[in-house]
């Protein structure tokens, strides 16, 4: 081989084994963008466009309607109650599953996943069967003046059921990967179990926990099926944002329906923005904790 060809060979840019050709790369990126545009961006834009079809003032007027305001308030209240509860349940479940060895562990993990595989409508019906006025428990609770179904507790139960796996599912793989050594180290250094949890376990899982909580929150605010079965959709009382949107849409009040839908979408975008802001602010910590 002559010097010239050798030189040419070494100066040419080599691709790594896992890298595709430029053409294939552009095609893949293109497919991803087209998919996103059709499935995500276009519907989102359509929602806002429909909401503003009669102008900004018409959209705002429909949102100032007491029923709409009640729905927003109810949805935020439900998220505020069920997300912290499920965060606590999720941490406890993930802790139990990853830090202890016991029989039936795989079964427990399957149980945690159950809400993902059961249709929300079925879940809602189960709650109605369990706690409805005709059931044993429900009848007694109604007699005590504490109805579950067609009331706030039922909506919270349904939301808790549907969003149960999010936090635990995010935490379990992270906690398995991290193992128990750091906790054991803290214990040998004299820390109590409680102190170990707050100073070692929780800081190590905080990002996974944040993702879990954000997903849980998004679903808690957006849940329709289970909630629509148990809530009875009483306007001003048990109608959440998603169920109100559906009712308004059925009544051909499209500006009102889409205005409320836009607010719901904005709430979701806000959580995403919050997540990104936190990631940027703590980028150095993220890098430090993820490298090994």
């Amino acid at each position: 081989m002559s010097d010239a060809t050798l030189q040419k060979g070494t100066t040419a840019r080599f691709r790594s084994a896992t890298e595709e050709s430029p053409l294939a790369r552009r095609a893949l990126i293109g497919v991803a963008f087209i998919g996103l545009a059709i499935l995500v961006f276009a519907p989102l834009i359509a929602v806002f466009a429909e909401a503003l079809a009669d102008g900004v003032s018409a959209a705002l007027r429909s949102l100032a309607n007491p029923d709409a305001l009640d729905a927003i308030r109810l949805t935020l209240t439900i998220a505020a109650i069920s997300v912290p509860l499920n965060a606590a349940f999720g941490i406890a479940a993930a802790w139990f599953i990853t830090k202890f060895d016991f029989r039936g562990k795989a079964f427990l993990i399957t149980l945690i996943d159950l809400p993902f595989s059961v249709s929300p409508v079925v879940a809602g019906l189960c709650i109605v069967l369990m706690f409805g006025t005709n059931s044993l428990i429900g009848g007694w609770l109604v007699a005590q003046g504490f109805p579950i179904v067609f009331a706030m507790p039922g909506i919270i139960l349904a939301t808790l059921f549907v969003t149960f796996p999010f936090v635990a599912r995010e935490l379990i793989p992270v906690m398995i990967e991290q193992g128990r050594a750091e906790e054991e180290a803290a214990l040998t250094l004299g820390a109590s179990g409680w102190r170990t949890f707050w100073t070692v376990t929780l800081p190590n899982i905080r990002w996974a926990l944040l993702y879990g909580v954000l997903l849980c929150n998004a679903r808690a605010m957006g849940e329709f099926g289970a909630v629509s079965v148990v809530s009875g959709k009483i306007r001003g009382q048990t109608a959440t944002m998603p169920t109100t949107i559906e009712m308004l849409y059925q009544e051909y009040l499209s500006v009102a329906a889409f205005s409320l839908a836009a607010v719901l979408a904005l709430l979701a975008l806000l959580t995403l923005l919050l997540k990104t802001a936190l990631e940027i602010r703590h980028a150095d910590q993220l890098a430090a904790t993820h490298r090994h």
Partner: peptide
Amino acid sequence: VFQSYALFRH
């Protein structure tokens, strides 16, 4: 002293 040291990474 643990095998992979188990330093608190955060």
